[in-house]
Design a binder for these strands. Structure first.
Length: 277
DNA sequence: ATGCCTTATTTCATAAGA
């Protein structure tokens, strides 16, 4: 974070700038070369990562670029992390009341990590997929989101500058999928899932919709198959939910679709926010 | 053009993704 000293009177407070990103990398191991390249060019101060898919986070190579890291991983699936070059403290792995699978009392999976970076409280989350509305994983997804809501209700009272971001595996509206008709009867678009997002927003969190760099759709995910990216047949399922203070200070938010191109991309693109505080 | 699926693992087959 850079501090711009204007020399103005004390009533005009100095403005701190931070560039924040969130990106489902679909394996940090497979994506490490692209992540490192992207860190150099996009120059984010803080990066929330999802689907790292490892218990052994590559702290050293990202450290060489100046980033501290906090990682929560459990092996083959899931895994979340945060990188920061503006400080990284108060790391919380998972949240109070977080359910597991198959039973809520099962050990929680590695799907949430909370950190504090230079006055911002951040949560990087990877919400359960749900598979289908008739699958036990769907009940798990709804229970996980309800527990997340309760945890964030506490967090926002403690941290007015709160950002909850990551892969929510829910498209907030029909405009957030390339063809709503295709998704009838599927997970990610049901009323219950969308109401769960509404419960998060009811806490005072704002859906910061990023601008696409091409075309009208703010999609963040495109299936690898059948040239979906090239036809812009995607979904907006990666979300940034920001408290008032953070949302009001956001000067830009965009989807870095270039990161979805080329050799060995993730199936998700990063969202980048520029924030003045 | 951006180009028609990818990942990790119980690895030459499977489960999972959304």
């Amino acid at each position: 974070m850079q501090i711009r000293c204007t020399g103005a009177p004390a009533t005009a407070a100095n403005v701190a700038h931070v560039r924040l990103a969130t990106w489902n990398v679909n394996s940090i191991k497979a994506r490490l070369p692209r992540l490192l390249d992207w860190l150099r060019t996009a120059a984010p101060d803080i990066v929330c990562l999802q689907e790292t898919k490892t218990g052994e986070f590559p702290a050293e190579p990202v450290g060489e670029l100046g980033y501290e890291s906090a990682a929560h991983g459990d092996g083959r699936w899931n895994g979340v992390a945060v990188l920061s070059r503006v400080g990284l403290t108060d790391v919380t792995l998972g949240f109070s009341g977080e359910p597991g699978f198959p039973d809520p009392s099962s050990p929680p999976e590695a799907r949430a990590v909370g950190v504090t970076c230079d006055g911002l409280r951040l949560w990087s989350v990877y919400v359960p997929n749900g598979r289908t509305p008739l699958d036990p994983h769907y009940i798990y997804k709804l229970g996980w989101l309800a527990a997340l809501r309760d945890a964030m209700a506490q967090e926002i009272t403690l941290h007015p500058r709160l950002v909850l971001c990551g892969d929510f595996n829910v498209a907030p509206t029909d405009a957030d999928v390339w063809d709503p008709a295709v998704f009838v009867g599927s997970t990610h678009v049901t009323l219950e899932e969308r109401e769960a997002l509404g419960q998060l927003r009811a806490l005072g969190l704002h859906d910061v919709v990023p601008r696409p760099l091409k075309g009208p759709n703010p999609f963040t995910y495109w299936d690898y198959r059948a040239g979906m990216f090239h036809k812009d047949m995607g979904m907006r399922i990666d979300l940034v939910y920001a408290s008032d203070a953070v949302a009001k200070g956001t000067t830009d938010a965009y989807i870095d679709r270039d990161a979805r191109k080329g050799t060995a991309p993730s199936d998700h693109a990063p969202i980048v926010l520029d924030i003045d505080i």
